[in-house]
Amino acid sequence: MSARSSSPPDTVSPSPLHGSGALGTNGEPLHQSGLSTPVPGLGFVGMEFQRNFSSKTLRGVGRDAEHVLKRLRTAVAG
């Protein structure tokens, strides 16, 4: 017996962040340079124009990830 999704194939599953306050009314992350503004310790990468034109590309996502991780580590170290 194979596992099947309970959602019809043409629907989108709700985001695991739904209800966390991390997303705006349009479903987009609320952030500044990739760091969630309402949820401390949460970061995002790969979004269009997150920090610059290349943020959504393979060329830019690595730089954004480094930036987000550096800021998250600084926040955790307090």
Rank of each mutant, 00 (worst) to 15 (best):
E66T: 15
D10L: 06
P14W: 05
D64H: 03
R63C: 11
L23W: 04
P29T: 04
E48Q: 13
V12Q: 10
L35D: 00
P8H: 02
S36F: 06
R73Q: 14
L23D: 09
L58P: 11
P9L: 05
S33D: 15
T37P: 05
G24D: 15
M47T: 08
A75W: 07
G24E: 08
S20Y: 02
T74L: 11
A77G: 13
S36W: 01
N26K: 10
G60K: 09
T74S: 12
Q50D: 02
T25G: 10
Q32S: 14
F53G: 08
D64Q: 02
F44R: 02
S33M: 11
T57E: 10
S6G: 13
K70I: 03
V76F: 05
G43P: 01
L23V: 02
A3Q: 03
Q50I: 08
H18Y: 03
L42K: 01
G34H: 07
S55T: 05
V45S: 00
L69D: 01
G78T: 14
S2R: 13
E28K: 07
R63E: 14
G27W: 03
S54H: 07
E66S: 15
V61Y: 12
S5D: 01
L17I: 00
E28R: 10
R71W: 06
E28D: 13
P29N: 04
V39L: 05
V45I: 14
T57F: 14
S55E: 08
T25C: 00
G46F: 00
S6W: 12
S7F: 15
G62T: 15
P14F: 00
S20V: 00
G34L: 04
P14G: 01
F49P: 07
G27T: 06
T37K: 01
T57G: 05
A75M: 09
R4D: 08
S55G: 07
M1K: 09
A3H: 06
A75E: 14
G62S: 15
G27P: 04
N26V: 01
V76H: 05
N52S: 14
F53C: 09
P8F: 02
S15E: 03
P29V: 01
T37H: 02
E28C: 09
P40F: 08
H67P: 02
P14D: 02
G27Q: 03
L72T: 03
T37L: 09
R4G: 08
P16T: 12
R63N: 12
E28S: 11
P8R: 08
G43H: 03
T57S: 15
Q32L: 13
P40I: 10
S20I: 00
S6M: 12
S36R: 05
F53Q: 12
